[in-house]
């Protein structure tokens, strides 16, 4: 770990302004990912701006009938909120499918959106990795890729966004709210928040340097039945091989997003539209243009089978 300086911010705008001023500065919230990466020198911030004192840990109802989730609401609090459990069950289930109880107590809503990939080559600093060290190459592309991406990836990077929460947020049409160093705020649809890797896999989101996530807004409840099925090699405490978030209406229409397959929670309008035609049609649409490898091509079949299980459960 490199030496760094540390301070605690007193307001969101102040936090944003401090980070914007210093090139090597980063926000620190729960620290469940950032601190691990700092120990490995994959992240090397020179200054940390701790946002934990900011007043962003509330879940409030919006005028539109939805919820605004503060950026500092912990995963534990989010998944246990009665309104979330009742009206946005897919979100509660997705959060509970992630990490461990201890980690969920520390992990925040804003931080979780910024969780970095779990590609093993990204974590091993002896290996080339365009995300960690731009231009060095991608060791994963022709390597051990069983966990890695099959769609939306590029020549330069086949990593996935590893989280669960954001997959549910994607089917809920959530909007990320931020504050910028100049005090202005913006609203970013979740589907636009994470970037595809292209030839700049080190750039992972649309956030500008110094732009702080203040909250996530859920539109009014979508109704329907909510599903989150995370398939992994063990029953708990593992990242998804494939996860499927779905909100299904009684008429068979609905929304679906896939996790563990792409640089972002993977949702396609065409795939949603195909829901009434069954899992095969949905997956054909969602995974059009996929680029699989021998050891991860199973993910497409697994996505189809997982969705088929959800659709069967919805019918029963």
């Amino acid at each position: 770990m490199r030496s760094f300086t540390y301070e605690r911010a007193t307001s969101p705008q102040q936090a944003a302004a401090i980070v914007a001023e210093r090139k090597g500065a980063k926000f620190l919230a729960g620290g469940t990912n950032l601190l691990d990466l700092m120990k490995l020198e994959i992240e090397t911030p020179t200054h940390l701006v701790d946002v934990q004192d900011l007043d962003l840990d509330m879940i409030e109802e919006t005028a539109e009938g939805g919820l605004r989730i503060g950026a500092l609401v912990s995963n534990t609090a989010l998944s246990a909120d009665p309104r979330v459990m009742r009206d946005y069950a897919v979100l509660s289930r997705a959060v509970q499918a992630g990490a461990s109880g201890q980690l969920r107590n520390k992990a925040t809503t804003g931080g979780n959106l910024l969780q970095r990939t779990r590609c093993p080559y990204f974590y091993d600093t002896n290996m080339p990795c365009n995300k960690r060290s731009p231009g060095s190459g991608c060791a994963a592309s022709a390597g051990y890729s069983r966990q890695l991406g099959v769609v939306g990836i590029s020549e330069d990077c086949i990593a996935t966004y590893p989280g669960d929460m954001a997959v549910a947020l994607a089917v809920l049409d959530a909007v990320v709210e931020t504050i910028r160093p100049d005090g202005t705020s913006r609203s970013i649809p979740l589907g636009d928040f994470h970037l595809l890797w292209g030839d700049t896999p080190d750039k992972e989101t649309v956030l500008e340097h110094g732009e702080l996530i203040t909250g996530v807004v859920l539109p009014k409840p979508p109704g329907g039945q909510h599903y989150y099925h995370k398939v992994r090699d063990r029953a708990s405490y593992a990242f998804a091989l494939v996860s499927v978030a779905a909100v299904l209406q009684p008429d068979g229409t609905g929304r679906v997003a896939f996790g563990g397959v792409a640089p972002r929670p993977w949702r396609k309008d065409e795939a949603d539209a195909a829901l009434t035609q069954g899992a095969k049609a949905v997956v054909e649409q969602a995974f059009a243009g996929s680029a699989t490898r021998d050891d991860n091509k199973y993910k497409i079949a697994l996505a189809e089978r997982t969705l088929a299980g959800i659709l069967a459960e919805a019918r029963s």
Binding site: G143, Y144, D233, R234
Partner: peptide, 30 residues
């Protein structure tokens, strides 16, 4: 039987999943 495997990178010659997140021993839920 179900989860444990040191994945070999046959180009670089090492076990890729060299941490507790990557080498999956069973958890209670299993």
């Amino acid at each position: 039987a179900l989860t444990e495997e040191l994945a070999v990178d046959k180009r670089f010659g090492f076990f890729v999943n060299h941490d507790m997140a990557g080498y999956e021993v069973p958890v209670h839920a299993d």
